[in-house]
């Protein structure tokens, strides 16, 4: 990809949109025509060139705009980035993973040179040139997780592993789907997934946890998760729910295509080497329904999936108020033709 970075907004005037290329590579999360809950974990291995899976860390045309939005969120609410004191080692692991991946996979934008503990990082799109000592937090303007987290798309949480559990003891979370890092920091895997309906009874989290506890170094895994958002707002945090919640009542048959967005999270999990912690990268992708239906297969499939969603999940994902209007709008894109298996465009 050698596109220019877009200058768009995710708040106020909401100028965000996807280029045709960006639409084609959107990670459409539905593999079949009806909704199925599954853990769907697969190895996070290199995917086709140009796809969101090409590199472990995906940087795309929205990079500069998303980083600007993150800076606004952190300015208004510094608690969106927190690390408990025992997570410093994991913070350095995190910084190393991001800097080495970004510099290796996007050399036109990022560079990293190291000589022992003396590191030199250059981020051209954001105009950053930083020399620092690896392992010494006083040589960076912020703690390592915040420093590099402000320069990489996606939210990140870091899980400490103890007593057969994973504990969310650090994170930089500014684009979350309605959960609070400030409240959840320090919780274990079962506790922070507490509010998720249905899955506990299905033992989904027990199985997922058991799998993750044995996650191996150098063998990251990934899965997709999704929700829907009104307006291309990245900061759909509970902290600001009283500010954005009313957006859900603004959907009309006329504005569905521009207002309603499918929001997909590419969640990747990496074992971190020094700390034995696990990094969750939660890389969000937004797409307007008007953009989504330009891929005929997705236009056919989305209404079929939304129509088969259990009530508990509609409620949990906050779709209740605008589901019917959205389904009516989508109906005209479903001509009843069969769809091919898998999520990608035909």
């Amino acid at each position: 990809m050698n596109q220019e970075f877009k200058k768009t907004t995710f708040r106020d005037d909401y100028t965000f949109y996807n280029s045709p290329e960006s639409i084609r590579r959107f990670p459409f999360p539905f593999w079949e025509d009806k909704y199925m809950y599954s853990v769907n974990i697969e190895p996070h291995v290199k995917g086709p060139a140009g796809s969101v899976y090409e590199f472990p860390i995906d940087i795309n045309e929205h990079y500069v705009s998303e980083m600007a939005d993150r800076a606004i969120v952190l300015k208004e609410d510094p608690l969106r980035c927190q690390a408990l004191p025992h997570m410093m080692l994991a913070q350095w692991d995190f910084l190393e993973l991001l800097m080495t991946s970004m510099a290796r996979d996007y050399p036109q934008w990022f560079s990293l040179t190291t000589e022992g503990d003396h590191w030199h990082w250059i981020n051209k799109p954001l105009g950053i040139d930083q020399k620092f000592t690896f392992g010494d937090p006083s040589t960076l303007p912020q703690e390592p997780m915040e420093y590099i987290g402000r320069q990489c798309q996606g939210d990140f949480s870091i899980q400490d592993q103890r007593d057969g559990q994973l504990w969310m003891d650090a994170g930089i979370i500014t684009t979350q789907a309605d959960w609070s890092l400030d409240f959840d920091v320090g919780m274990n895997f079962m506790e922070w997934h507490g509010p998720v309906p249905l899955a506990h009874d299905m033992k989904v989290f027990d199985r997922a946890l058991k799998f993750l506890l044995n996650l191996q170094l150098g063998q990251p895994v990934r899965r997709l998760n999704w929700t829907m958002t009104i307006n291309p707002r990245l900061d759909t945090s509970p902290e600001n729910f009283h500010k954005w919640g009313s957006d859900r009542t603004t959907v009309t048959p006329e504005n569905v295509g521009d207002k309603v967005h499918l929001r997909v999270e590419l969640q990747a999990l990496f074992r971190l080497p020094r700390s034995n912690a696990i990094l969750f990268s939660i890389r969000g992708y937004l797409i307007k329904l008007r953009e989504l239906v330009t891929v005929p297969k997705w236009g056919r499939r989305l209404p079929r999936v939304l129509g088969s969603l259990p009530m508990e999940l509609i409620d949990y994902k906050g779709i209740t108020r605008y589901r019917d209007t959205t389904l009516e709008w989508l109906a005209k894109y479903d001509d009843g033709q069969p769809t091919s298996p898998g999520g990608g465009p035909d």
Binding site: G186, M187, P238, F241, H242, K243, S246, T249
Partner: peptide, 26 residues
């Protein structure tokens, strides 16, 4: 704000979570 008290509990905060109940329609 009017808060819905959820059963979501944080040991670190020693508190339950309260979320604005009328955010969608004031």
């Amino acid at each position: 704000l009017s808060l819905l008290v959820r059963d979501h509990y944080s040991k670190r905060r020693a508190a339950f979570q309260g979320v604005c109940v009328d955010a969608e329609v004031r």
